[in-house]
């Protein structure tokens, strides 16, 4: 039974154009089976965020995204009271002589509650996918806010009480390891590490996402990227850069790589000036390893 479910998930990911491997399918399967959040870590541009998007599409449900950043607090992630409307309401009720208890219960009700992504996710009637993107960019305090949701599936609002999840959302957290996450957060999640793809996997992704790219061009791009990642770069290019480059070169109707083309389009792949300079110095060697050097002359 479960074997079939795992197969279904593999097919579900593939049908949405996500070329993954068995470890990704297993993680998604277990996250759904055990109803636990999934923490996905890995270098930038390897398809971490894509997992949540694909899951939402495949399950035909809403994707609620919470983009984390330094200084993100509960008012932006969980909930906030609509102060302006509360004040306006109180002003309008001044002449009606409403007693304080009634007024208080009205202004601290759902009507004046602004639901931010996390609260939105747990109050939805159909099970949504909540993507907490780049959790490592948020402050440590924010992680503590999340713990209640991740373990008990509820949000506590002092004025109202605890709001339990109607349907447990499927939570995907992603991180680039710019900061170490707390043990408490890790323990509440299942874990998946996605590394840069192997040559075959990357080629399959290029074929699926950029079908207009020539077969040989695709192979050369993937080999070049594999070698490029061996260099010590400030910002190592991920799959998204490979796809951008493949699209750019396919758009130029190129059938294979050559030194001039690589030099002029390196900006699509590398996003750091020092990386560009470093790569240009090692370009001949890189192209040699890619098997392009014979065609230069």
């Amino acid at each position: 039974m479960e074997n079939r479910r795992l197969l279904e998930i593999e097919q579900m990911l593939t049908s949405q154009g996500y070329i993954g491997d068995k470890s990704i399918a297993m993680s998604v399967y277990l996250a759904m089976q055990l109803e636990k959040p999934l923490l996905v870590e890995g270098p930038a541009g390897v398809g971490k965020t894509e997992i949540a998007k694909v899951m939402a599409k495949a399950l035909d449900t809403n994707l609620i995204r919470l983009q984390c950043y330094e200084g993100l607090d509960s008012t932006h992630a969980l909930y906030e009271w609509n102060y302006q409307h509360q004040l306006l309401y109180l002003k309008m009720q001044e002449n009606n002589k409403v007693d304080i208890t009634t007024a208080e219960s009205t202004i601290f009700s759902d009507r004046f509650l602004l639901k931010r992504p996390v609260l939105q996710a747990i109050t939805q009637k159909t099970q949504p996918v909540l993507l907490v993107d780049e959790i490592d960019r948020a402050d440590e305090e924010f992680e503590s806010f999340l713990l209640e949701v991740l373990s008990d599936w509820q949000v506590t609002i002092p004025e109202i009480g605890s709001i339990k999840a109607v349907q447990k959302p499927q939570i995907i957290l992603t991180g680039n390891r710019t900061r170490e996450l707390s043990e408490a957060l890790r323990r509440r999640c299942l874990y998946l590490w996605i590394d840069y793809p192997e040559f075959e996997k990357e080629l399959a992704i290029v074929k699926a996402k950029v079908p207009e790219a020539d077969e040989r061009l695709g192979q050369e791009i993937c080999t070049f990227m594999k070698e490029l990642r061996q260099l010590r770069l400030e910002k190592t290019p991920g799959i998204s850069e490979t796809l951008d480059w493949a699209k750019a070169l396919a758009g130029m109707h190129l059938k294979h790589l050559n030194k001039e083309v690589v030099e002029s389009t390196l900006g699509v792949v590398l996003k750091d000036w020092q990386d560009m300079r470093h790569t240009q110095d090692a370009l001949s060697e890189l192209l040699d390893k890619t098997g392009v050097v014979s065609r230069i002359g």
Binding site: N3, K22, S23, R177, R186, L190
Partner: peptide, 30 residues
């Protein structure tokens, strides 16, 4: 629970399931 009721006839999948549940960082995962 991850293994319960699952007919794991491949050791690789058995390990993969345990890896997802028990590893909590990159080093442990690898």
């Amino acid at each position: 629970l991850a293994l319960g009721g699952y007919n794991f006839n491949e050791e690789a999948k058995f390990i993969l399931a345990l890896q997802t549940v028990l590893a909590k960082n990159k080093q442990q995962y690898i």
